[in-house]
Amino acid sequence: MTESATVVQAVEATNAAGDVGEARSLGADAWRALRKKPLFWVSLVLITIFVLMAIWPSLFTNTDPDNAVLRQARERPNANAWFGRDIQGYDIYSRVVYGARASILVGVLTTTFTVLLGGAIGTLAAYAGGWVDALVSRVTDIFFAIPLLLGAILFMAATQPRGKPYFVIILLVVTAISILGWPSLARLMRSSVMQVLPNDYVQAARALGASPWRIIRKHIIPNAMGPLIVVSTINLGAYIAAEATLSFLGIGLQPPVISWGVSISDAIVGLRTTPHMLAFPSLFLSLTVLAFIMLGDAIRDAFDPKTR
């Protein structure tokens, strides 16, 4: 009795909704769910701020990050230097602002490369099948078996970043993380394409004589991209953390390059006496990582009908 009553109510509810609302695609539905989430907006605002910081640091500070005032070295936060000064007498606030560029660049570039590489290889393996799939999967296994951090350390040591220009070092770090980061995305894309392939619309497109390239571009990729986008948003945060770890170990970015990882590495010895030198770069690094992870979480929840 109660069961049927609920069903009736539910049907009425959908009818009522159907009268006012129009049919929505999954994307539009997800966007409606996303809009209502405060976490989504918080992370979006944070990401916007950090990206702005990376592009135009001078919007946020007028202080030159390379202006060392040795007399005031290790000063606590005060009216002149909001976040205090570090051991070289640099203004920590401006160092933190200028340091955003390295992290955001590494995160965004690595994510782009891994998505392109992993996505393409995964799609190829799933679409071609047969021996191509077997071969590609074994190659993926080979790269997958090397732990990310370990491989990145080896790569950085082999390429000797010390003394090279800023963008070269950034690109080296990006390459190191990309080489080892793509296999997980390739596996993800492969399984997601395999789920899309047997669908009727793919068969229909093939029956209508569409070329493989058109099928992949117009039918498979739009329908299989979802998981890849979600995971790579979360990964973006992890890549930023990996860059900082490499810099912390002294084989990623090196001074005079300004980066959060380098600042943290310099400050960590003075944890007991000058905690402010460690706190601010760590805070910004954590907030950036947090923002991307929260964004990925929110998008995943919005696209997953089960969690609604």
């Binding site: 945060g237 953390a241 770890t245 912390f248 943290i264 960590i268 990582v289 947090l290």
Partner: peptide, 22 residues
């Protein structure tokens, strides 16, 4: 958990070493 995920592990390590150890 979100908090722990976002803090780099070397900062967590240094903080634990300082507070729990020293």
């Amino acid at each position: 958990t979100l908090f722990v995920i976002s803090i780099p592990v070397f900062v967590i390590g240094a903080l634990c070493q300082y507070f729990l150890g020293v």
